[in-house]
Nucleic acid binder design. Structure first.
Lengths: 206, 206
DNA sequence: TGACAATTCAAACGATAGTTTGAAAAATAG
DNA sequence: CTATTTTTCAAACTATCGTTTGAATTGTCA
């Protein structure tokens, strides 16, 4: 077996990830991808069996990267007091607000999927979302020790949603009329504010 | 001036709204629209000056309908105790979970826009989102009477985000592995649960 | 009714989409 | 070096896209 084509594959995946994140699956043409990657047009079919196969590759990478960012800290989070663990979780979820990096692109790809889920994505989700959801569920369980399963799941989604609304809409929120500041200290303050509200919400009350 | 074409316009807008909601702007072809509306292909250019013009029409209608859905109740909400007002707001925001109706389609069209905002939408947002955001801000202000402007805006977004994460991802959440039930009583319970957590979060604590 | 504007229609336009082709080039194995 | 496989390449293929065209039809007003 001979494999001198790894470079070409990597260039294609890298270019495709950027374009899929920016324009979505339908909005990205393979001609745009090969132009950015500076490879021949037929290379995508040769290496990935078409546009679908390439998209699957990109989606897998995005999913791994996004969940691993949290899951890598799952163990140490579990050792912290629940309030600190929650703060750390929220802080990490808000991280794409600051970084115009790979993570932002991955979030963007997922945003496309929430409006028009592809078959590839659906399968990926049912196969691989369990660890991440489990981490969020474990976290809220420490605040709601007697809640039933449904309540815990909803609380986990609630927690994730509080963060994702800012991440997802960061471009709109940063411009008029909201003009939300997104520098490091502002995001820090945002994370702390959200943490406070979340703890208050999950705290038992009479 | 002669105007026997209102029927054609309405059929086109109605068909386009459904298709744009389901597939987004790029994913909807004018051939699909005219097939669904059962009008001639050139009718879209004749009546709306092209696909862009038609989309603008649909977007305007969606925006009006959605904001009016909440804003129509703004006055009466203001007369209610703050806890009940918040519950009513959340309940209305979660409504698309139940109804496969016009409002649900309009929310879906907006979901497309958060991924790839069109110029039309950006303008619409800066022009007309103020009343809606103002309503949400007024609502949270009743819980945070001494908060500064930034905190109030973030709280309003936080409130909206808590609801939208369920609406936006309803299809994924309803299927495995989450299997969130979306019948009437379940949504009722969800609204009450979210209301409780939100009140708890915004309530002052020592 | 006749003249004219508004509306509908089938057909075609140019552009771009994803994919396929078959040969040239490069890399590997014997 | 030779034989063989892997990889690249330019070009073409088929399908669909949004839009335009110009004639036919319909509706309105004088």
């Amino acid at each position: 077996m001979t494999r001198p084509s790894e470079l070409t594959r990597e260039r294609i995946v890298k270019a495709a990830e950027r374009l899929f994140a920016e324009r979505g699956y339908d909005g990205t043409s393979i001609r745009a991808i090969v132009a950015k990657a500076r490879v021949n047009q037929a290379a995508i079919n040769y290496h990935f069996n078409g546009k679908d196969g390439l998209y699957r590759e990109v989606l897998l990478g995005a999913f791994r990267s996004l969940t691993e960012h949290q899951l890598a800290r799952a163990a140490e989070t579990h050792e912290m007091p629940r309030e600190l663990a929650l703060a750390a979780f929220i802080h990490r979820q808000l991280r794409p607000l600051l970084a115009r990096d790979e993570a932002s692109r991955h979030i963007r790809i997922f945003n496309w999927e929430t409006v028009r889920p592809t078959a590839v994505f659906r399968r990926l989700l049912t196969e691989q979302s369990a660890p991440f959801m489990g981490m969020a569920t474990d976290l809220v369980r420490r605040f709601l020790p007697e809640a039933d399963h449904r309540t815990l799941v909803v609380a986990a989604i609630w927690l994730i949603g509080q963060c994702s609304v800012f991440v997802r809409n960061r471009e709109q929120l940063a411009s008029a009329p909201v003009l939300l500041a997104l520098d490091e200290s502002s995001v820090e303050w945002l994370a702390e504010t959200l943490t406070g509200w979340t703890i208050g919400g999950l705290r038992p009350r009479g």
